[in-house]
Computed example of a mutant assay.
Amino acid sequence: MAGGKKNYQNTILDIAEALKLSPATISRALNNHPYVKEQTRTDVMEMATKLGYRRNHMASGLRSNKTRTIGLIIPRVSMFFHAEVITTIQNDLHKHGYNLIICQSNDSVNMEQELTETLYASRVDALIAACTLQTVDFSHFDKFVDHGTPVIFYDRVPVGDYKATFIKGSDFQGAYLATNHLIAAGCKRIAHVSGPLTSNLYQDRAAGFLKAMEEHHLSVNPEWVFHQELTHENARIAMQEMFEKDIVPDGIFADNDTTAIAAIEFAKEKGIGVPDALKITGYSNDPRTAIITPSITSIEQFPNLVGTRIVEVLMELLTEEAEGPVYKTEPVIIPVELISRMSTGVNK
């Protein structure tokens, strides 16, 4: 027989024997029961640490049908907006005694589907999700809804009816503000570099852009409207296509700040003056927009407020006793704000 250390896990009985207390008292102390004296609780926790006791959360969850764990699926942790939302959600959930399992879909529908299976099998008490840009079939979330597990979609949400809670920014208003700002700054030939129209974000931002252009009786050049993955490389390609023509834009509304930064870089390389010959607005108010030269006008999405509202709504849903799906029937809309900087000629 191979040698080695004995595989041994200390239990509540071991702690009870060491402290000469009943197993019931130990269990109450580990669960922060209000009737346990503070000194007893301290003694139990110290002995639990000394003996290397690890609470079996899965077993506790099976008994109570609650795991005190929330699942979160996001496109990419590296995105500024989602990183800020995650930080707020985790901090606020911790105050309520919940843990957070963070999963990254990498903007892959297949990965998103696999993650929903994993989180469902983990018996999370609720699911928070910002979907991929290509998600148009949301049936992989149905298992949560059908089981009565709260589902909150934020930022990237289903288009149309779905029995879940939506928390999203006012993307129509943000695009409308950005486009109006360019027009007020004197732009008449405005390009729009946007994301894929499979996503609610870019449907709403496209509508806001078109509304502002229509109100000011400005024509939209279809050769200056792009719906693509908003990467640095794609932004450079779009800029090259627009500025190799005889007539070029004098304003660009970029649907994310990565695209706006790429546009600034391109303009510098080609000797295009920003903001004199070309004015640029971004979206999300990434910290990079304030330190690049010239600084970039952008739309503030208030990610900390988004995270706070997600947890507030989630706590309401988790305390509601209802049969069937638990969700808010009306979407929660987070306001946006235009932050004016030098890329449009104004720095406030």
Rank of each mutant, 00 (worst) to 15 (best):
Q9D: 04
Q9S: 12
I12K: 00
I12H: 03
D14I: 01
I15M: 09
E17Q: 14
K20V: 07
A24W: 07
R28F: 05
N32I: 11
V36I: 15
Q39F: 03
Q39N: 12
D43F: 08
V44K: 01
M45L: 14
K50H: 13
K50M: 11
R55T: 15
I70M: 10
I73F: 01
S78P: 01
F81L: 13
E84K: 05
E84Y: 04
T88E: 13
I89G: 05
I89K: 04
L93K: 00
H94R: 15
G97T: 11
G97H: 12
L100Q: 07
I102W: 01
S105H: 06
E112N: 04
T116L: 03
E117A: 08
D125N: 09
I128F: 04
A129L: 12
A130I: 02
T132D: 04
H140Q: 12
F141N: 02
K143G: 10
G148F: 13
P150G: 08
Y154D: 03
R156V: 06
R156P: 07
V157L: 00
P158E: 10
G160E: 03
D161T: 08
Y162D: 05
A164M: 01
K168N: 01
G174L: 05
L177K: 07
H181M: 06
C187F: 05
C187M: 05
K188D: 10
R189S: 08
A191C: 08
H192G: 06
S194F: 05
G195E: 05
P196Q: 07
T198A: 11
S199P: 04
L201D: 04
L201A: 10
Q203F: 00
A207K: 03
F209L: 03
F209R: 00
L210N: 07
E214V: 00
L218V: 10
E223V: 04
H227N: 13
Q228P: 00
E229W: 00
E229D: 14
H232C: 10
M239E: 13
M239A: 11
E241H: 13
M242Y: 10
M242T: 01
I247R: 06
D250I: 08
D250R: 06
A262H: 02
A262S: 15
E265M: 09
E269C: 09
G273I: 13
G273Y: 10
D276V: 03
A277S: 15
K279C: 03
G282S: 11
Y283F: 15
N285P: 09
N285H: 08
R288F: 10
I291M: 08
I291C: 04
I291S: 11
T297L: 07
E300Y: 12
N304Q: 15
G307Y: 05
I310W: 03
V311N: 01
E312Q: 14
M315E: 08
T319E: 14
E320N: 11
E320C: 11
P325N: 05
E330Y: 08
P335L: 14
E337H: 09
S343Q: 09
V346K: 00
